[in-house]
Computed example of a mutant assay.
Amino acid sequence: MVGTKKVIFAEFGGPDVLRLTDADEPHAGPGQIRIAVRAAAVNAHDWRLREGQFQQARPIELPAGIGIEGAGVVDEIGAGVTGFEVGDRVFGEGSSTFAEYAVLSVWARMPEGLAFEEAAGYPSVVETALRVLHEVGVRPGQTLLVSGASGGAGSAVLQVARDRGIKVIGTAGAANQDYVRSLGALATTYGEGWVERVRRFGPVDAALDLAGSGVVRELVELTGDPRKVISIADLGAPEFGVRFSGVAGSLPDALAEAVGLIARGRLRIPVEKTYPLAETAAAHVDSQAGHTRGRRVIAV
């Protein structure tokens, strides 16, 4: 079997457990495709998996690959797949995408004019944005507060909400205030006094915690109703009556909506930094530090 390069970890731990190694090429099973990976996005899920945070809920066997989404060129098509050919440029989700070759289980054609590095960063954050906007029940004309507005999911939420006629207030670091405003939101910094700064913008109808920075209690206070708050990052949210949203919705639908929004010029998620495969550990360090503007991507 032909060999390929792939990032794996053989034990749970910090970024130093990641290794770029030679591995057997994966192959597309029924209903799957294999891509020659051009770029793979870095997600919080990746380093949480590496640390062993999911072992009780979803155990994995070691050694394991890493990376759940990517973009590249189709080079193998599994049984039952129609409408795609070898050579097509696609983006989507699969497994072990921090590699030269990876199998995708859900994918779509890349929109015209989109670079591989950009495309790799869309699937999970657009799915997350569409899911939490639906779950929180915010409607056109209402005001949504987004804590952690400048990251990948925040960037998607702000733009989808704007497209739907929802007013957004976003909290982010001082360096990202202009970025949040550029996405159509009102912006303020987090930190001491942030609740009062938000109040000056007026009433808040719903709120999203995308950063897990311990603000769920305040979000409930601002909305007046724990049912109007959703968190994707604070496992302690249910203690305040707030729903923790961790189960993905329909990725094919999310990819289709993303393609439409991108084509209409209504969605653009920037890439803050790219890393080669050999520097995946550095990408994890930066991802865990937060303060991202858009996405971090492994370029293969």
Rank of each mutant, 00 (worst) to 15 (best):
A40P: 13
N43E: 11
A44C: 13
I33Q: 04
A44Y: 06
F54Q: 04
Q32C: 15
L49P: 01
R34I: 11
P59V: 07
G65A: 12
R34A: 14
Q56N: 09
G52I: 09
A40D: 07
R34V: 13
D46C: 11
I60C: 10
P59R: 00
D46Y: 00
F54T: 05
I35T: 09
P63M: 08
I33Y: 03
L62W: 04
A39L: 11
Q32E: 15
L62T: 05
I60K: 00
P59M: 06
Q55E: 14
A44L: 14
A57D: 04
N43A: 12
R38H: 13
W47F: 15
Q53N: 10
F54W: 11
L49M: 15
W47N: 05
N43I: 14
I35F: 01
R58W: 10
G65N: 02
V42P: 07
I60E: 06
I33E: 06
P63E: 02
N43T: 11
A36M: 12
H45V: 15
I33G: 04
E51A: 15
I60G: 05
V42G: 03
A41C: 13
D46E: 08
H45N: 09
I33F: 09
A44I: 13
A44S: 13
I60M: 12
D46M: 11
I35R: 04
E61Y: 00
I60R: 00
R48P: 00
G52N: 02
R34F: 05
R38S: 11
Q56D: 13
